[in-house]
Design a binder for these strands. Structure first.
Lengths: 178, 178
DNA sequence: TTTACTATACCGACCGGACGGTATATGGCA
DNA sequence: TGCCATATACCGTCCGGTCGGTATAGTAAA
């Protein structure tokens, strides 16, 4: 786990700050301190705060894409294969709801909504993909919407279900997609 | 629609700013300008920015509660009555996904996550209520989660379905709750 | 004259970003 | 091998602007 390049370390730090202290605590200084270097050092790797957040968003997208591929491969063929993949990705701790990622959305929307543009594009792509193999697109869309709700609730630390209850919801979602 | 008291006008202004310009543009000055008074005027009515956001959150809660009551009365008796109420509320333009409300969440979470406390409490209440009349709590929870996803996607201006597609999703949700 | 409300002026803190400088590593070249 | 040149990575400091909040003076109605 030795960080070969500092860039990733800084992104990690920024994510951690958003997650543990809230978006408003994400400053270049704070990120620098957590990543154990100076603000100047951070600005060497990212030419602006927007740039840093762009990188956070990109990492989130890449992470989701990777999980999608991984789960899609495991998922049996048939209708709703992509929708089921989305469900499994959403509940994966490495995914958008998990610790590492997730805060990127919050950071982007608060600092500069334009930074969401890559997400918008990806989202459209994912939606299209899900609908492409869903006999009932409305049902698939509803389930995917619920996955967004899950991410959302984690972001806001809303009192969502305990682990066991979440597992039941996940199973329920998969049940609907058979 | 004559504003009887200035407080409501200021809250309206704050909501509008979050919605139209983004959270980071919500400053006391900006809110004052939109509400057509001075910053001093705003601080007369709200002793701090946190106080203003608390009021925004409270309005959102009240609005949702009111809609819940309204739709619950209209909804036929039987299982999943509360879950169906949540669905109708979520899609109501006066509700959390609509123009007036919604941005309150964003404002709270970015400025000071503690301001979400009232939401947490309300949320727990709503969840409990939904589960109380749902034969399959996991299904009801899933659908409610999707409603949160809907709100979330609107907040982030994600490329969600067009009106007609959303209507189908709404009908799909109600279909599952029969 | 008190109350309710508004406007102006200002302070202090914070933050993003710019900049000059520094240490190390690498590489050509004589 | 010794010497200079350059690139990479990073530090510390400073500046300009913004924003929340305070203090205070003013005004209009009751």
């Amino acid at each position: 786990m030795s960080p070969p390049n500092t860039r990733e370390t800084i992104i990690d730090a920024a994510m951690a700050i958003v997650r543990e202290q809230g978006v408003n605590k994400l400053t270049l200084d704070a990120a620098a301190k957590v990543a154990k270097l100076s603000k100047g050092g951070v600005l060497y790797h990212f030419k602006s705060k927007d740039d840093l957040i762009r990188a956070m968003v990109q990492r989130m997208i890449d992470s989701c894409d990777a999980l999608h591929l991984e789960y899609y491969a495991q998922e049996p063929e048939g209708p709703y294969r992509w929708a089921r993949t989305v469900v499994r990705t959403a509940f994966d701790p490495r995914g958008p709801s998990g610790d590492p990622v997730g805060g990127a959305l919050l950071a982007a929307v608060t600092v500069n909504p334009d930074l969401l543009a890559p997400i918008h594009a990806k989202f459209a792509e994912w939606i299209e993909r899900v609908e492409s193999d869903s006999p009932n697109p409305a049902l698939a869309a509803l389930v995917c919407m619920a996955m967004d709700g899950y991410v959302f609730e984690r972001m806001l630390k809303l009192p969502l279900c305990n682990d066991e209850s979440c597992e039941r919801i996940k199973q329920q979602a998969l049940e609907l997609l058979k």
